[in-house]
Design a binder for these strands. Structure first.
Lengths: 227, 227
DNA sequence: ATGTAAATTATAGTATTACTATAAATAATC
DNA sequence: GATTATTTATAGTAATACTATAATTTACAT
């Protein structure tokens, strides 16, 4: 029996739980590949259906529209990353050590061999980095928020915020620093790939330099806010 | 004779220079109001045309599509902000003082009485904050970049990066810190408005707190990277 | 095994969107 | 005042984002 990763998702994100059926899983798997390949704007349910060997109407039975599907995938991603971060920092004693590990995990590309589910996490990571912001940059962000679509992201942000507070009890902006850190990790990667003059990283992967920048940023701020 | 603000824009952004005709200016003015009102997803050239009292085809004579129009508006905005920042920091002696002024300008809402053009800068500022990222979060970001669509943003980023370098010659990440600062200023405002638990700001405008957070961030990093 | 209900998928359609082609009107210039 | 260039209007098309309903498959109780 194969190990399957399963996260219970907010039921308002879907019409029909895609994790429950083979067709649903195929929709998730293929939509990740297709959104990654052609981008959210070009992505349609018809193209997805053809790629997945099902009909358009079938996709509509699972997801109201492509934005909901994106929100689902993004929520799944943050849930997964949070789970991984919690797992990999749990045994560390010092909050500074935890923070260092988190920065490394935020800034590093996802390795393929970690895929133990029907989701290609490496590709999904790239989708989140390149278009994840579109999940909330909408006019209906308030409504979506009231339905708790962003809960996984918020929980990760709080998790990291608490570690920041452990490092510097009394620091006034743990959540703002946490959300800034997460955004900067993904943003700097995007900029380095596509608009490199907005960064100071040399050609190549740049992962190490990005980690150094983020460490310098976070620990610089913390050093300036001594206990 | 009325004072009119005019920036020469990258000619690849439009098919027909909207700043040259009354109809063109009307398109800019009304598109800002409409995108702000209904969001980029719901925004169509037909709706814009009806609102502006012209036909859809007329809009297409000026802009290839709505994404180009957004790119134009966003580029205009960064050009305008850069001009304002250069103007308001030029007479300041100390780089730290300049940086403080820049942070204030990035984090503060735009006041209405500054509108001396056919563009409503206050509304445009909100568009850039809420959906400006969509201008580059696309599959064709590389192509757009090669056509220099993002030059105004890059130039602002370099301008601020140079001031950071004046504060700390030898600091390794002036551009990354600059782009992170700009993004964080807008992002924290968006979060504060729509996903407040990702920040630590109290209800109300939060402008002062956002400025304090950003100052603490930037000057904390700089303090940790002593000359 | 078989009948019935429930779940799932397929087919067919509609209004809107994102354009293009071309005709008509207006303005600019000599 | 005629010619040319510019601008706008009209009319269309293929694709998109859905909805309604019919057909099929699956589930499972007897």
């Amino acid at each position: 029996m194969e190990l399957q990763l399963y996260f219970r998702m907010n039921s308002h994100l879907y019409l029909h739980d895609p994790q429950e059926t083979a067709t649903g899983k195929k929709i998730l798997k293929e939509s990740i590949l297709l959104i990654h390949k052609i981008g959210l704007e070009e992505f349609t349910f018809l193209k997805l259906a053809k790629k997945a060997g099902i009909t358009e109407a079938t996709v509509y039975r699972y997801f109201e529209n492509k934005h909901r599907l994106l929100s689902y995938l993004v929520a799944w991603y943050w849930t997964w990353l949070h789970w991984r971060i919690a797992r990999d920092t749990g045994m560390l004693a010092e909050p500074e050590e935890k923070l260092r590990r988190i920065i490394r995990m935020l800034a590093s590309p996802v390795r393929d061999d970690l895929s133990i589910s029907f989701v290609n996490e490496r590709i999904l990571h790239e989708i989140v980095a390149e278009q994840g912001a579109k999940a909330y940059l909408t006019k209906h962000v308030g409504k979506d928020n009231r339905m708790n679509f962003f809960k996984p992201y918020k929980e990760l942000c709080h998790f990291i915020g608490n570690i920041i507070l452990e490092c510097r009890p009394g620091y006034a902006y743990p959540h703002s620093l946490s959300s800034t850190l997460i955004e900067a990790a993904y943003m700097q990667k995007f900029y380095h790939n596509h608009l490199p003059s907005l960064t100071d990283f040399s050609e190549g992967s740049g992962t190490k330099e990005r980690i150094l920048f983020l460490e310098n940023l976070v620990f610089g701020v913390l050093a300036a806010n001594q206990k």
